[in-house]
Computed example of a mutant assay.
Amino acid sequence: MEIVLAKRAGFCFGVKRATQMAFEAADKGGATFTLGPIIHSPQVVQKLEGMGVKVLKTLENLNDGTIIIRSHGVTSEELEEAARKELEIVDATCPFVKKAQEHVKRLSQTGYDVVVVGDADHPEVQGIVSYAEGKVFVVGSWEEAARLPKMKKVGIVAQTTQSFENLKHVVLECLMKGGEIRVFNTICDATAVRQEEAKSLAREVDCMVVIGGYNSANTKRLAEVCTELQPRTHQIETAQELDPAWFVGVNRVGVTAGASTPKWLIDEVIDRIAALDVEKKD
Rank of each mutant, 00 (worst) to 15 (best):
D91G: 09
D91W: 15
A92K: 03
A92D: 11
A92T: 03
T93N: 06
P95W: 15
P95T: 11
P95H: 14
P95K: 06
V97N: 00
V97Y: 02
V97D: 06
V97R: 01
V97L: 06
K98W: 15
K98L: 12
K99N: 13
K99E: 15
K99S: 12
A100M: 11
A100E: 04
Q101I: 07
Q101Y: 13
Q101M: 14
Q101A: 06
Q101F: 11
H103E: 15
H103Q: 14
V104H: 03
V104Y: 05
V104Q: 01
K105T: 12
K105C: 10
K105L: 12
R106P: 09
R106K: 11
R106V: 10
R106A: 12
R106M: 10
R106H: 12
R106I: 10
Q109M: 15
T110W: 09
T110P: 09
T110G: 05
G111H: 01
G111D: 05
Y112K: 02
Y112Q: 02
Y112G: 03
D113G: 05
D113Q: 08
D113L: 03
V114C: 00
V115F: 08
V115M: 02
V116E: 02
V117K: 01
V117Q: 01
G118V: 00
D119L: 07
D119S: 10
D119K: 03
A120W: 13
A120M: 13
A120L: 11
D121A: 13
D121G: 15
D121F: 12
H122Q: 08
H122L: 01
H122W: 07
H122A: 02
H122Y: 07
P123D: 05
P123E: 11
P123C: 07
P123A: 01
P123Q: 02
E124V: 14
V125H: 06
V125A: 10
Q126S: 13
G127V: 01
I128T: 12
I128C: 08
I128F: 12
I128G: 04
V129W: 08
V129I: 10
V129Y: 11
V129P: 00
S130H: 00
Y131S: 01
Y131K: 00
E133G: 15
E133P: 04
G134A: 11
G134S: 06
G134F: 05
G134K: 10
K135W: 08
K135C: 09
K135S: 13
K135Q: 14
V136Y: 05
F137Y: 14
F137Q: 03
V138K: 00
V138G: 07
V139T: 12
G140V: 03
G140N: 13
S141N: 02
W142V: 14
E143M: 07
E143D: 10
E143W: 08
E144C: 06
A145R: 03
A145L: 07
A145K: 05
A145Q: 03
A146P: 13
A146K: 15
R147V: 09
L148F: 05
L148D: 09
